[in-house]
Design a protein around this nucleic acid. Structure first.
Lengths: 337, 337
DNA sequence: CTGTTAGCGCGTTCAG
DNA sequence: CTGAACGCGCTAACAG
């Protein structure tokens, strides 16, 4: 069946003339072993090129040494950064991440979570997504859980969210400070919690500045480049004047930038543009995009670190990450035409 | 220790009043079972909300139902697409991918591969990377292997490469056809096989057109945005005239585009730009980037499909993927200044 | 310090 | 068609 030579712990024990438990002990440092036997065992291990079977260890220990991570799209420029942070935090801990994608689809996510639970992951990280809180709470009964992008208060849960409203408020206020009064907003997907929060921040900034909210300046947009293109086209068709655009995320900002380019509208000379997220690529847009930085890598790293604590039986730690405006070149002072 | 209720197969058997093997049988469809017992077992499964312990199944079956995937950077826009293809091909096959990053570092990769082998992955996919062929061949003795970005002829190995030389040749010829004669080349990383092949394609195109190779037009560049910026600056310092740039990958092309923007050099009016890869974002550059499309998603998908075949005991399939030039807006006909 | 004895939870003969 | 017995490879008491 399996033609690949695979040495077992028993074989090592036999070769070294000791019992299997002794081998196990020196492998895990579980107990003191005489130097003589230790040497013999180590020699045997080397000679046989023995490597423990992790699956068997897992079964015996009742732990899989894996943590499940449900992201929405493994190729998303934003979430990938978080995955990277998770990967880094888990490196050399013995835990391996199991990444699965939920595709912003509740049914998919439920299935993936089940898959991970069946594989007996020792912990779970859910990056945003569409799962209802109840399912998450239910899942937390079976395994330590970390969720991002939402607040969830429960015993074995650590939730990690940033203040999208404040970020949007800052961005909009920045544009206002630059002299803009007609600020369009690409509002993301209807009903998405992040979108809702960012819109709220936008509105509050307008309020603060005594600028009336004009709904013809606000348009929904998918959270991707295509959505940005479509949104700008829609805005242009409406023939509402605007001198700045605040996009609910960098990908739609990038799409917006292209749509403006296509119409021969210069950024930032004619229209200022601000995004949200600060994707790695946003620094290399032309012009480099001014945006609200969301620490995606840190989010992932922090999530993983918190999960490690929880898997260790410790309580979920406290902390908060903040967003900040990164001023680059896609927005400038409004100048009378 | 473990406070989470976990039902076992034995409990289901007891509850249904049958033997564990019967439960196992109906779980795996291994043999015919009387409808009466089947119904009882299914009821018990539902009542107890039983889910098989995958770790235990794996140990018993001798298969982990996982495939290892070593990528270089989990957040790389190029490789992420391949991961996505792998994920899609593996969906609903029962196999779960285990993604690890090698960071373009031989030592890291060796360690990661060992980690995957220890976890008893049933198959392995290595996306490019720095591993010497010997190590790969050695690994292939233990597990079915698929490698991309290189040619490796061996029994249990499937290698999948695209013709970088041809792609670069096509791109360069395209620029020549547009009337360009002074075509700079951002040559990627010294010694990288892809970089070498792409440079060769560039040179062959020049030869074909009877244009002398001018080494002052060629400059090394990291395969990222920063590398593109640096390369353009270096080129500009050399004060060699050029009317077009062929970058060895899209990320460096994007960096180049920004560097040109900074110097007030218009793309494509003053300098034409062509990249390589066709990253998802390249469609949304301003201007949209003309580039050589490398089917990253397909590569991943094909790799996974081939691996599935091999894990099934079938021989490695044959096939080849091709590159194609995607003409967009970053390059145009050369016009006398 | 060390060997022996039991499992971990399930798949798979092997007899019935 | 079904159950009993054994084994996957390793860890974890339990005696010595």
């Amino acid at each position: 069946m399996n033609d690949r030579a695979t040495t077992t712990l028993d074989q090592v024990a036999r070769q070294a003339g000791v019992s299997p438990s002794t081998v196990s002990r020196i492998l895990n440092g579980t107990a003191k072993v005489s130097d003589a036997k230790r040497a013999r065992v180590e020699a045997a291990i080397a000679a046989l090129n023995y490597r423990p079977n992790v699956m068997a260890q897992n079964l015996a220990r009742g732990r899989s040494m894996t943590v499940g991570v449900v992201t929405q799209d493994i190729a998303s420029p934003f979430y990938s950064e978080s995955l990277k942070g998770i990967e880094a935090a888990l490196a050399d801990t013995g835990y391996a991440p199991l990444f699965v994608s939920g595709h912003w689809n509740e049914a998919d996510e439920i299935e993936r979570v089940a898959l991970l639970v069946d594989r007996r992951v020792d912990g779970l990280i859910v990056l945003t997504g569409m799962l209802p809180d109840e399912i998450l709470l239910e899942t937390a009964e079976r395994v330590p859980l970390v969720v991002t992008g939402r607040q969830l208060a429960a015993p074995r849960v650590f939730s990690l969210d940033i203040d999208h409203e404040a970020g949007a408020h800052t961005a909009t206020l920045y544009l206002i400070g630059l002299g803009h009064r007609r600020i369009a907003h690409l509002a993301g997907v209807q009903g998405h919690p992040d979108a809702r929060a960012r819109l709220a921040g936008y509105r509050r900034a307008l309020d603060d500045a005594g600028i009336a909210y004009d709904e013809t300046l606000v348009v929904d947009a998918q959270f991707n480049e295509e959505g940005g293109v479509a949104a700008i086209e829609q805005l242009l068709e409406r023939r509402t004047a605007f001198t700045a655009v605040f996009a609910a995320n960098d990908q739609s900002a990038t799409g917006a930038r292209l749509a403006l380019y296509r119409r021969g509208i210069a950024v930032p000379e004619q229209v200022s543009l601000v995004g949200f997220d600060d994707l790695p690529g946003s620094l290399y847009c032309t012009p480099p995009l001014t945006t609200v930085r969301q620490p995606a890598y840190q989010i992932g790293r922090t999530a993983a670190l918190a999960l490690l604590e929880m898997m260790d039986g410790k309580p979920a730690p406290e902390l908060s990450l903040s967003v900040e405006l990164v001023v680059r070149e896609s927005a400038c002072a409004y100048s009378q035409p």
